[in-house]
Design a protein around this nucleic acid. Sequence first.
RNA 1: GGGUGAUUAGCUCAGUGGAUUAGAGCACAGGCCUCCGGAGCCUGGGGUCGGGGGUUCGAAUCCCCCAUCGCCCGCCA
Length: 557
Amino acid sequence: MKDEILKIIKDSVDSLGLPETADGNRAEFEVSVPKKKEFGDFSTNAALIIASATGSSPREVAQKIVEAIEQSSHGFIEKLDIAGPGFINFFVNEALFTSELREILRLGGQYGASSNGAGQKVMVEFVSANPTGYLHFGHARNAVVGDAVCRILSFCGYDVTREFYINDAGRQMEMLGEYVYSALSHTFGIEKELPEDGYHGTYISELAEEIKESERCPQVPGDEPEALEFCREHAYSRLLEEMKKDLSDLRVDFDNWYSERAEIHGSGGGEEKLRGTIKRLQDLGAVEKKEGALWFKASLHGDNQDWVIIKTDGAPTYFLSDIAYHMDKYSRGFTKLINVWGADHHSHVSRLKSSMKALGLPESALSVLLIQFVRLVRDGVEVPMSKRTGEFVTLREVLREVGCDATRFFLLMRSSDSHLDFDLSLAKKESSENPVYYVQYANARISSLLRNSAQRGINPSEEHLNLLSGDEERSIIKILLRFPEAVHSAANSFSPHKVVYYLQELAGEFHFYYNKTRILDSGSTEMASARLCLARCVQVVIENGLGLLGISAPKSM
RNA sequence: GGGUGAUUAGCUCAGUGGAUUAGAGCACAGGCCUCCGGAGCCUGGGGUCGGGGGUUCGAAUCCCCCAUCGCCCGCCA
């Protein structure tokens, strides 16, 4: 519908022979649905754009465009206004609105979907935590935002793969093994000294208990290397299992679990990836040996310093693995790569991009979404989330306390580059203060209406949609038809919170309408069925929107 | 010192070139169904959009400077 308006504008601009922009590039005309109804049903800034390109008066240009549109006589345009500095406002008749409602009903779960992505293969890599402990609440925002971005991109026609990069190589894993081994030794009455910056959670001793009770428990003291490895591997697989479970409880499910150890370092072809990466960088002259280590010269490719990729002890750094991993992503045929990272990794963005640039890979295909921290608050007081002391709040604790829907809603409510206060006491409140229920409640109310109407023999019918000419009805319809652009904009900027805001607005408008207007007792069966139809459309959009956020839309609450 | 994100109502935040009065939720004050779900609705007070310059027909939005807060700056991952 908006596209039709846009086409009309472009046609008339063309017919006038006006340049779209000064440099002849693609026009940036916008057609928007204004919030104030005196500004019409649709509005465009076309005249302002053209005027600034040609140096002429915006209102005069607008006048010419308006005349051109009027001459080509489009049946559904009732009135055209020129307002303010030169906006052209369109007032359309209800035929256009009712056709949009029919479209919503016809498309159902597909309303708002698009093929903008054109099947492009996109990989979203997110969470990617070390499997050395339970997921803490800080991971939750990353998980939920990444997942919602995936849902939104799929809805927009992208072929999305969700990948979890398991950082299961390197010192962290060794340390995990040592700690569990130490805890196991402890159960045999042997005490060991360990570095202080390790893992202190109670899960370490729980894992040791599990090992001790298993039939394959190694003897301690006995063959130390085997016992250590057993502890490490047992802890690894158990913790990975627990992470998968927590994520799944959060409705986050991955397509790929990509093991750094196996795929990058492993003997089954993996180590060639590391060697191959080094070789390519060497061939390109992008590395240098210095102070006994091998450095990637990132400063030559846009970063502000160089980074070590092979340490003096000959071991690769995490950064080298990361380069190899991202080369591998490209080689798997993805044309769009999205990494969802914690804001504390922001300095890695430019170094990774510079490495892709050095390798001649299209770095513009790689976007990194940095997620700012979450502060957990209860009754206005910050809940400490210190990992060092082992006191951190786990994802599963929060899930158990407030449930998946509220957790997701709150984590998605804010722009990712804004710090987020997650208020535990508010999130679990089942009252009007809690915005999750506000949206879900609108949906439940509509379900209830549909149930009651069936009993009364009223069916939501498309036949009488033309009766919906009230102001409140029009404003609901106008919000409904903004849904596709809300989705589109959320997809382009990887911003699920735009969908959240949209849904709150739609739910608000519906609650207002519901309080003011009788739907089932509206005087005539025709009117009742038309209003019911409108309510059903609202429900379709709420269901679709909540679906994009991975939040349920219960029929009753 | 460098980098990065933020700074908008009492609080938590949207808005990031547009339309005489800058929005929402919470909090606060007052009100609303003999009737479809009161987890709802309405009304009201409350802001020099951190400060200062600049660009523009037009700036909360773009540019520069400054201030404050978070995060990062390891041959850890």
